[in-house]
Design a protein around this nucleic acid. Structure first.
Length: 448
DNA sequence: TCTGGGGTCCTAGGACCC
DNA sequence: TCTGGGGTCCTAGGACCC
């Protein structure tokens, strides 16, 4: 059996843990740059506020109903997430962290085992987990338990929609499974997005139960090949995907990116360059934190796609397989990024957003291979020289930034040449950010 | 004026090889 | 001029996820 534990309205719940006066009131959390709504309390949902709604379009509604607005505070959410995941790791044989607020649990063989302890077996165990997460972290959750991941997701969803279930649904019998499948619209099945939902309803497939009845060939044809076939099999109760435990409570990525919409449109290439250098710095930090090097680097810039005066294409990108071999050195990566950027920046263009992506991630190879396949290109030569010089520098830099705060020590190229209101020109708004209650000493709550 | 950010997996098609 | 079958690797793009 698989469990799927999902935190309810996670970001809103995190804010409420530290400011309980917002309990029972409508609350929303906004995306970066205070752009759109990314988390809503039940009360906010009841007001008709949609997920992803742009703030500027709904701000009157927010004000009218006295909705409490927060800018996103990832230092807080990330830390709360680690606490939840850590606890799950203590009580189950395997945890796959699926996202900041969701985890699959390995519950195989636990039903019999739990019976003598909890009487009700797995179902009672699920209730215990949920209660303990709430008691230890303050975060409310729902837990679906079923023979496949897809059914566990579905069970979780049904548990969320039916408060009488007490936050847990265990699909242990064919009858319960059939009932649960009837409750869920096909568009709400895990793996069915907008495009597929449209195709399916056009074909008269409206519920998850309908989808569970289609033939494999039909699923392959309509739902993107093998993915669709697996999805239907999983709905029928045959597992097609196992649990991939997250080692020591962290997630290891196959690609790492960092991108931002700028706080204001940027025209000066120097500003865009500094922004990209700072995004690259962040991406390289994440790369080293997971103990990898990157072999492939992509840089992209975007114009404003919402501006009718700007013709497509909105985005230009350039990708490079590092000629000097994989690297985790910010200086090396930044040099290549600057080079890639020169290929895609156009004079007189106004940019809205930029980003970097690191791919081809692998652990550092032992031994010195520098220079062996040394490329002739001047950029590569310069880059190789840089990384050979003081190889410990990145470790030192990460140590300093961990101790004294992110950005304490930076590359010169990532430092903005001008500041606007004390911030770099690419940094956005975060008008309503709460404190880093759990990770910054100055923000600790005081109890009087 | 203001519209997020970070991921995964799969398929198709081209280049190249024997 | 006609003309095979299989394999690998890479990239671009689509669809989906939270």
């Amino acid at each position: 059996m698989f469990g799927l534990l999902d935190c309810n309205n996670f970001y809103v719940s995190c804010e409420r843990v530290f400011q309980p006066r917002f309990e029972g009131r409508p609350v929303v959390v906004l995306s970066n740059n205070d752009g759109c709504i990314i988390s809503r309390s039940a009360e906010a949902k009841a007001l008709g506020l949609a997920m992803g709604a742009p703030y500027f379009q709904v701000k009157d509604v927010l004000r009218q109903h006295g909705v409490q607005v927060f800018s996103s505070n990832y230092a807080l959410y990330g830390d709360m997430s680690r606490r939840v995941m850590w606890y799950l790791g203590q009580v189950t044989p395997g945890v796959e962290i699926y996202s900041i607020d969701e985890a699959f649990l390995d519950l195989h063989g636990l039903d019999q085992y739990m019976q003598p302890y909890l009487g009700g077996g797995l179902e009672a165990f699920a209730h215990t987990i949920r209660a303990n997460v709430k008691a230890r972290t303050g975060i409310p959750t729902c837990l679906g338990v079923a023979p496949t991941k897809t059914l566990a997701k579905l069970a979780n969803r049904v548990a969320k929609k039916n408060p009488d279930l007490g936050g847990v649904l265990y699909l242990d019998s064919a009858e319960r499974r059939a009932w649960a499948l009837e409750q869920v619209a096909v568009s709400d099945v895990w793996g069915i997005g907008r495009q597929y939902a449209q195709k399916l309803t056009a074909a008269g497939i409206d519920s998850a139960a309908d989808l569970a009845k289609v033939s494999e060939a039909w699923a392959r044809k309509m739902l993107g090949g093998v993915v669709g076939a697996r999805l239907v099999r999983e709905l029928q109760g045959y597992p097609c995907s196992g649990l991939h435990p997250s080692e020591d409570g962290t997630l290891s990525r196959q690609s790492i990116s960092c991108s931002r919409t700028f706080g204001r449109p940027l025209t000066a290439h120097n500003d865009v360059r500094a922004a990209v250098a700072s995004f690259l710095t962040r991406a390289a930090e994440k790369l080293r934190a997971q103990g990898d090097q990157a072999y492939v680097l992509t840089v992209y810039v975007q114009k404003n796609r919402f501006d009718p005066k700007v013709p497509p294409p909105y985005s230009r990108s350039a990708t490079l397989t590092l000629p000097g071999g994989p690297s985790a050195d910010t200086r090396v990566l930044a040099q290549y990024a600057g080079h890639l950027l020169s290929k895609i920046l156009e004079p007189g263009c106004t940019y809205h957003k930029a980003g970097v992506v690191l791919d081809g991630l692998e652990p550092p190879t032992t031994g010195q291979q520098l220079g062996l396949f040394a490329p002739a290109a001047p950029v590569a030569e310069a880059a190789a020289k840089v990384s050979a010089d003081r190889p410990q520098l990145m470790t030192t830099l990460d140590g300093l930034n961990a101790r004294f705060g992110r950005g304490t020590v930076r590359l010169g190229s990532a430092v903005p040449t001008t500041l606007i209101g004390g911030r770099a020109p690419w940094q956005g708004q975060a008008q309503w950010q709460s404190g880093a209650f759990t990770t910054r000493l100055e923000d600790l709550l005081t109890v009087s």
